[in-house]
Write a protein that binds this DNA or RNA. Sequence first.
DNA 1: CCTACCGATCGGTAGG
DNA 2: CCTACCGATCGGTAGG
Lengths: 206, 206
Amino acid sequence: MIPSPNPPSKGELTRQAILAAAYPLFLEQGYHATSMRQVASRAGIAVSAIYNHFAAKQDIFSALIFDRHPYQHVLPILQRAPGSTLEEFAHNAARAMLTELENRPDFLKLIFIEIIEFQGAHMPSLFQTVYPQVLNLVSRFDTWDDRTRGLPAPIIIRTFIGFIFSYFISQYMTGPITGPARKDADDMHTVVDIFLHGILKPGEQQ
Amino acid sequence: MIPSPNPPSKGELTRQAILAAAYPLFLEQGYHATSMRQVASRAGIAVSAIYNHFAAKQDIFSALIFDRHPYQHVLPILQRAPGSTLEEFAHNAARAMLTELENRPDFLKLIFIEIIEFQGAHMPSLFQTVYPQVLNLVSRFDTWDDRTRGLPAPIIIRTFIGFIFSYFISQYMTGPITGPARKDADDMHTVVDIFLHGILKPGEQQ
DNA sequence: CCTACCGATCGGTAGG
DNA sequence: CCTACCGATCGGTAGG
């Protein structure tokens, strides 16, 4: 007998089936274009059965955005990225994030839906849940304080994450979303290089 | 008598009234959450009257995204930004874009709606319309070819625009959308400084 | 015959 | 968790 310390109740299994059914539907169609009947059908239950687990349609989205929002994946990836020097860390962290983004091209869609269809209503409480991890990352950047040009760590982190995100978002903004992300690791390397050294030639600083 | 070379027909005026009514509704609520009745009410006409100008609801959005997509504003701003040196241009262009973004906090929402609710269906043809302007911007960056570290101009432009966008997007991603954007011009200056010189100390390049 | 637009209502579907 | 429904509203269209 395999010990199962937390045997999920049948109700919890159904709840998870509803979330698993709704998640890809929301990402592919958006929130308002997804019907409760679609979710129920994909979950293998009746529409009314959903309401035994969620009081309203929007509560399904609320549960999803707290369970699966991208920040809780991005921040641990950045923290786990190896590298004793700032350069190594930056390139490793960028590569790890790019790999994650390639494996999950819908990474940011949950946030986009939140912004467009919920007017960012969940954002404040969402930010609160990740704030401790942001502080952890700040302290890691403080390790290399002597290497940087005295720029505040929060601005560095914000710029770095913005770099990687914008590199990824640009695929959304220049072409069709369909198909897996075609990424050029060399381009990513160049972008990180700009982050570290800027676009100007050494010695050209005026 | 004022000469009016292209007096808009009454039909054209109504068409523009429909677009002017639908635009803020789409930005505030998203596409699917906006009803034709809301659009008609705001335009001051009956719902059925819309169908004299648009065959279907989605044709309203199609017209809007081609008329008012953010790229056609961003690219001219970048091209018009003054500056004889690369540094001057970068800071001026960033400031001009930030001003534009502050005045229009919903700048990117049209693209987000396109991504989420239309699966980026308009993106390929949208990109075709702005491609000539991108080429123009590339040639401007080529002017300072001797100042940069041999990085390809497209990557520089992509990184620069990504910088400014990500700086702006971060407000969406860390707090509520409501209210005008609170922007710190000093922060923006620092981000541009990182773009030009990197985060590392001069002489620390290994 | 055209356009622009109306009040009323179509077949289906929304969340509950 | 189901079948059977509700008030209302959806996008779109009828004749005039």
